[in-house]
Write a protein that binds this DNA or RNA. Structure first.
Lengths: 198, 198, 198, 198
DNA sequence: CATGAATGAGGATTCATTCAT
DNA sequence: TATGAATGAATCCTCATTCAT
């Protein structure tokens, strides 16, 4: 049952908590939150279900842990954004950084996107919505033309969906990312035309 | 326990199947597919779980039924689109009609969007993906610039997400729909600039 | 697995709910509430655990059901007592009837006595306490001498404990019941001496 | 996290065993034995569950420890009683001393009373029953009238139940204790009338 | 058309206990 | 003296599904 003296066991010491989160995220992203059972997670880690409970109080807490660890960059981004002037360049920079954050934690964000109904009921649902609204408030100017507001929202959707839906489009991943970002930036830029702002 | 002679019961005769689908969709959209139990559906209809099984072979079949009933328009749209020349005007028309189809069956599409992980594992997952790819093939020109391909994809995301995410933006629903459609059409139009096509 | 054509199975139809309560009470009284698992109850009935849940929403509800069925007489007794004048004869009659009620549902009351800590946390705890206080208010005169108040309380304890603790004293059960009742009545009678009341 | 140099931690050294027992008894009495988990005890003491196992071999042993420490007086009482002549005065003295013992270890006896079903299955169940029978043999004369035997038993019930049930009766605790004792002694005294004994 | 009764599989969670350090 | 990490067995409960009536 699992390596004995070859280091496998050794290295497992102390990092079990992390390993649980890794495996859990993998399975959550693959099959969805509800369809992933703690039994499955435990089996893949070659530990017992009870071991999971040593590290996390509930199934939900496992997800919360992952979420908190991985979304800090977005948190910081929102905080940073709030303090910047709402110029076009700020918005572009927001999109660039946001794209980077999404890419860095792609599995989590894929999970969030594909399990919205579930996430909404969970503790993280609110935190997440708040972040989204934070970004929205920075990107969208409430006094702009409605169509331009939609353009900015659309820039976000593009980033979100682009990450995952474009996987089955062929082409170099790096190039695709760049293309997605370009379209998003373009949308925000167009939204700024006509306003007399910088 | 349900009216007797006042018509409530009467009208219920024969349309139970439909009523099941209505309630099911309502709950699926509200709470997600997995978190909605047959018990819940049955209770809300004031029938027994067994009654559901008289009308549908499995829980999944309930969803399949809803899906088939409500996505025929999209099916037809794809079929129609395939026979049209891939001109810009065709694409615009596709977007217009697609937007209309989404609006007409908003709860279902909201459900599909928020339960992607679940839907993927279900029988309807494939049908749905096929339709999506059908639309994509019409909207996206594989020989176009990558950025322009993304623009077309983005037009679809905008339609999808715009439907639901914009609900908490204030403004007249009709106007919002129009704005969303305009942005989508705009994206497709931009994607056509530069190509020497009509 | 249980008789097939000999009537055992037949008779089981329809009375499963009652059979669950019977077996449950038996086990609750024997081993305590917490130490009795639903698995055990189900096994003894040769049904599945899930069958129990068809008839009762929770483990606690099984007990609630038993309790409600079996304590109605005490309920009625309290109601009756409240409308009587607080004379000595009323009190004697209360004790007589209470003793009868306890005997009629001996296993339940034994259970209640031996699982007070558990019962207190359960939904029935309050109902039960209320009944007890109801009886107390009838039996105990708050203006009487403290010692006489204790005498009346003691009459109740005697009835309660007498039922069960005296099981291992030898002698005819009927005679023992009578003796217990006599002591209880005696206590109440003594408590009345000295008061100028009837 | 627990004082460091202020004496709190200091004083804790060495008396952990006692502190475990104190907290355990508190919780056992409050919630019952089964519903009190070692986790809970450990948490309240700000130690780990494993620490409990350093001091006690099992959960049951914690209770055994408490029991042995606190019931020695009753033990002694029984031993003393056995060597006395079975006179009325002896019985009165037994009741007086027993009442004192119960009061001194009220939480434990409250626990025993409210968790009879549990205690019966535990190792201490037998020891306890033995003590009770010891007292009974001293108080009850097997050749006496059945009613008088019940009177003596009732004296014990009164002491037991009086301790706890009378808590919500108002009045000075000291006076209540005296009243309870008086009733108990009275019962035993009455049981002696008619016998030609001293 | 629909129900009442039941099942089998599986869910998350909790517990007392162990043991190397 | 204690802890950190883990286990195995059990818990209550829920679910989709079945079938005789």
């Amino acid at each position: 049952m699992g390596g004995t003296m070859d280091g496998t066991r050794q290295r497992r010491r102390g990092d079990t908590r992390q390993r649980i989160q890794d495996v859990a995220l993998e399975l959550f992203a693959e099959q969805g939150y509800e369809k992933t059972s703690l039994r499955e997670i435990a089996e893949r880690l070659e530990v017992t279900k009870a071991a999971l409970y040593y590290h996390f109080k509930t199934k939900e807490e496992i997800l919360v842990g992952i979420f908190e660890d991985l979304t800090r960059p977005v948190d910081d981004l929102v905080a940073w954004g709030r303090e910047q002037p709402h110029t076009l360049e700020t918005k572009r920079e927001i999109l660039r950084r946001y794209e980077a954050a999404l890419s860095a934690a792609a599995p989590l964000f894929r999970f969030m996107q594909e399990n919205q109904a579930t996430v909404r009921e969970l503790r993280i649902g609110d935190s997440f919505k708040e972040r989204m609204l934070g970004l929205r408030d920075i990107l969208i100017d409430p006094e702009a033309d409605l169509v331009d507001q939609v353009r900015c929202a659309s820039a976000m959707f593009t980033l979100h969906a682009g990450m995952f839906v474009l996987r089955d489009l062929d082409g170099d991943p790096g190039e695709k990312r760049e293309a997605v970002l370009e379209v998003a930036i373009d949308l925000v830029t167009q939204a700024h035309r006509g306003t007399g702002r910088p």
